[in-house]
Design a protein around this nucleic acid. Structure first.
Lengths: 127, 127
DNA sequence: CCCTTTAGTTACCTTGAGGTACCAGGGTAC
DNA sequence: GTACCCTGGTACCTCAAGGTAACTAAAGGG
């Protein structure tokens, strides 16, 4: 094997492998969408929920907490009534946009081929 | 918002968004490991299972089938006894290694910061 | 007074990824 | 000839992520 692959293959699944840590965070349904929306600037909870569309409050809370825990967003709560909480990407969070752009570029270039294979595969399976 | 973010934010979660298709495939526990191992060349089922380490037969079967469905690997079954099935990365599969390398690079550069934030966050929460 | 608004939390349910255990089916050893 | 191994794959169960909805606190409007 090449040393490049060795770095992320290792001796099997390792929850502490750096690549795995990132994929575990970014692989879930909403994190990428939240980061994308926050790329436009700070936003409060309800605006974020409306903007992402389809996410439940519970899951958005969990997603934002995980992002804050990892230092990718900041959470700023103002003790006003009613409460107001602003979320904002950190520099670390913004630095993630490069890799995310690469993923997006690959997807947009190759998704047609993937879908084509998928359709062909499904046709063959149903015969 | 920038048009770049619009491309993958859209009006919320969309299972057909190209980026989502890729993340749904690559975000699971084993796919990246399997692609990493297959980068070394074709490999048969059992060798793959031993090489990845920790993956169950069922999950490896499902992972490989999903990869084959998407045209990222080929599955070649020889009707010998005992059976022999070879799996190999396609060109499309190999083209994924670039994005995966970017992910890996980001992870290795920033994982220390993420872990540090995580520890600080957890300390604060337990007080 | 009651209802609304905000940022959650909690209870409960559904779903599906992933793990365990087993199967088919032809070898081969005795 | 029968008992057991090898391979790739499958039935079945578990458990946790994610979804829905009800509830909270505290101020303000009608």
């Amino acid at each position: 094997m090449t040393s490049a692959t060795a770095a992320w293959v290792g001796d099997g699944y390792d929850p502490e492998c750096p690549t795995r840590v990132l994929l575990d965070r970014v692989g879930d349904k909403w994190t990428v969408l939240v980061i994308g929306v926050l790329a436009d600037g700070p936003m409060r909870f309800t605006a974020l929920r409306d903007r992402v569309g389809g996410v439940s409050g519970k899951v958005l809370t969990a997603t934002l907490r995980a992002l804050a825990r990892d230092g990718l967003v900041t959470r700023t709560a103002y003790p006003t009534i009613p409460p107001r909480v602003d979320y904002e990407l950190t520099d670390l969070g913004r630095s993630l946009q490069g890799p995310l752009d690469v993923i997006r570029d690959w997807s947009e270039q190759h998704i047609a081929a993937v879908i084509a294979h998928r359709d062909k595969f499904d046709d063959g399976a149903s015969e």
